[in-house]
Design a protein around this nucleic acid. Structure first.
Lengths: 216, 216
DNA sequence: AATAAAATTACAGTAGCTGCACGCATACCG
DNA sequence: CGGTATGCGTGCAGCTACTGTAATTTTATT
């Protein structure tokens, strides 16, 4: 219209964001009401007032509208901070890193909660979610290896260092899944940080050599 | 034909088993050659000389032909042995239990290996595999809880006992995934038992309070 | 040999998804 | 302000996975 048409990030970008958000909200609402399997892409398109073709241009897949934007890699600054961390609690540090990346991803907590509830009750979505996470695991493994090297550990002194790195990532994934389930099922009264520490403590209790049984 | 037509398990059952095995073999061979995504159900049906409808009668899903029969719960005897185990190494015991159930499932090691190779390189199949495993997790959690109770641990003395049980199952799943990947990628020279013990040792090294760094 | 039960099949239809080409809105430039 | 390039939404035709149904064939029973 005026000589300065691009206010926010360009009118185009705003419209895109709006329709995308609308579609995601419509998808979640429909699925929470009728169940994921009974929601058709055409229904979401009707609610979002776009053609089916446009829907697939946005999400590529039906599941995409329900899962939201994929988890991003953390910013370089955070990565560096992790790599040069103290080293005492690598599992806690990694879990913290992942959590931070997840949190500032979806600003609306209502959407986030609805999404988690739906994913928990829908095996198909849960599986796809795990697949997405698995796609990040390789780069996270490299990150953990970097940290090992920064701590002076080498493949020479520890032949299975790469295995260890992969296992660290795997364990972090377990802790995240466990914690998310407990958090969004409402079974924990406390802060997310407390929950994560609780989960990690649980891991230690289980793997702790032979101390699980109570004294009495 | 004769007065005793049912030799093995009935001619019907044998034919069923034969066509099913044929379809599974055809599916694996085609996918290893052309890639999972480029194999169509019709191709498999042609190779197996059945109609598409019959294919879906057998497997219900395209993925089903590649994943094989779902993992079964172990026999009651094994379950009892687990529940009344010594208690020192619950993670090892559970991993052993799962492994045993997997092993006597697919007698042909060639098929098993081909299947794993395909699953590893196909995210969609990997995700579905994990979903299948997740379906067993609930009953495994109950099993672990039984063992806790058999050891005299109660929810009264340990309020988060159920959490601990769920975490044990989650960790066992991590160990299994890690080990399977390493095993079938050929990166381990040794027996499966050794590999499993190695993996669990890795978990302990990581979670061990503050011992991961070498002295030097 | 007659009959019951079970397996296989063809057929029609739905839903997810893709390539392609066309039209229109937006952004850019003189 | 007008012209133009670019991006985006859309319709359409088509492929593949999957399902219900009813008919046909194959195996089991008596």
């Amino acid at each position: 219209m005026t000589s300065k048409p691009t206010l926010d990030d360009g009118l185009r970008a705003r419209k895109r964001a709006a329709t995308q958000a609308g579609l995601e909200r419509a998808a979640l609402a429909l699925a929470l009401e009728h169940g994921y399997e009974n929601v058709t892409v055409d229904m979401i398109c009707d609610a979002g007032m776009v053609s089916q073709r446009t829907f697939f241009n946005y999400f590529g897949t039906k599941e995409g509208a329900f899962l939201g934007t994929p988890p991003p890699m953390p910013a370089d600054a955070e990565l560096a901070r992790f790599v040069h961390g103290t080293g005492a609690d690598i599992l806690g540090d990694l879990v913290g890193l992942i959590t931070a990346a997840l949190v500032d991803q979806e600003p609306d907590p209502g959407i986030l909660r609805a999404r988690r509830m739906l994913i928990e009750r829908t095996p198909e979505l849960l599986g796809r979610e795990n697949t997405r996470v698995a796609e990040l695991e390789e780069s996270l493994t490299l990150l953990v290896l970097d940290r090992f090297h920064a701590q002076g550990r080498t493949e020479e002194s520890t032949p299975d260092l790469e295995d260890e790195a992969r296992m660290v990532v795997t364990l972090a994934g377990s802790v995240m899944r466990f914690s998310m389930q407990k958090w969004f099922s409402g079974g924990f009264a406390g802060t997310p940080s407390e929950l994560l520490r609780h989960s990690i403590a649980l891991v230690r209790r289980i793997t702790g050599t032979a101390d699980p049984a109570p004294r009495g």
